[in-house]
Amino acid sequence: MPDMEKIKKKISTDPFARMLGVRFDELGEGYVKLSMQVRDDMLNFNGSMHGGVIFSLADIAFSAASNSHGTVAVALHADITYLKAVPPGSTLVATGVEKNKTRRTGLYSITIDDADGNHIAVFQGVVYRIDQPLF
């Protein structure tokens, strides 16, 4: 069984995630829950949250969930469907769940919701596990 505290500490040092203000709320094997406050510098020219920031939050959750087994996992494919615009000041919650895991691959589903539980986006990704420990 992997050392989840050590893995969480490693994953939460991600400089890009820190720049976005992502909080690593929960981490378990094949599971993660993150949250982030929408800032004014994350908005697009229409005044709603930039889709790239939403994708980044989902991608960070994808990375955390897929690397939570203590073995390096790298993305092979990712896609996202945007469902609702996000106004400034909102809090977003990303929940990542492992749907399938083999020795070499994994399938992950990430949902992005606002604080009221409204679905903002759904993301799905596939990873390849390289034969290398996370530490």
Rank of each mutant, 00 (worst) to 15 (best):
L76S: 07
Q37M: 05
A75G: 15
L76C: 04
D40M: 04
L57E: 08
E5D: 15
M19S: 14
L134Q: 04
L134P: 05
M42N: 04
T95W: 00
K99E: 15
N44T: 03
N118G: 07
A61T: 00
D113P: 04
N67P: 10
D40V: 07
K6H: 12
S63V: 08
G117P: 05
E5G: 15
P88F: 05
F55H: 02
D79G: 11
K99C: 12
I130W: 10
E26D: 10
I110V: 15
I54Q: 04
M19R: 13
R23Q: 15
A73M: 08
V86C: 10
G52L: 04
K99S: 11
R104H: 12
L43N: 02
I120F: 05
V74T: 13
R104I: 07
Y31C: 06
V93K: 02
T91N: 11
R18H: 11
T91M: 14
Y108G: 01
A58L: 00
S12A: 03
A17G: 09
L34G: 01
G89E: 08
T95R: 00
K101F: 11
G30F: 02
G51L: 01
G117N: 04
D25G: 05
K33F: 11
V74C: 10
K84S: 14
S90W: 02
A121K: 09
A64G: 02
F45R: 06
S48A: 13
K9Q: 07
F45W: 05
S63A: 13
V122W: 00
T105C: 01
P87K: 11
F55E: 00
D113E: 15
G30V: 01
G52D: 06
D41V: 12
V127I: 08
I120P: 01
V122Q: 07
S56D: 12
L92R: 02
A73H: 07
I11R: 09
G51T: 04
F123S: 02
K84F: 11
A94T: 03
H77T: 15
Q124C: 09
D25Q: 07
A73N: 10
E98I: 09
H69E: 13
D59R: 02
L43Q: 01
V86F: 10
V126D: 07
G51F: 03
S109A: 15
Y108I: 07
Y82F: 15
I11E: 09
T105K: 08
K9L: 05
A64N: 03
K10I: 15
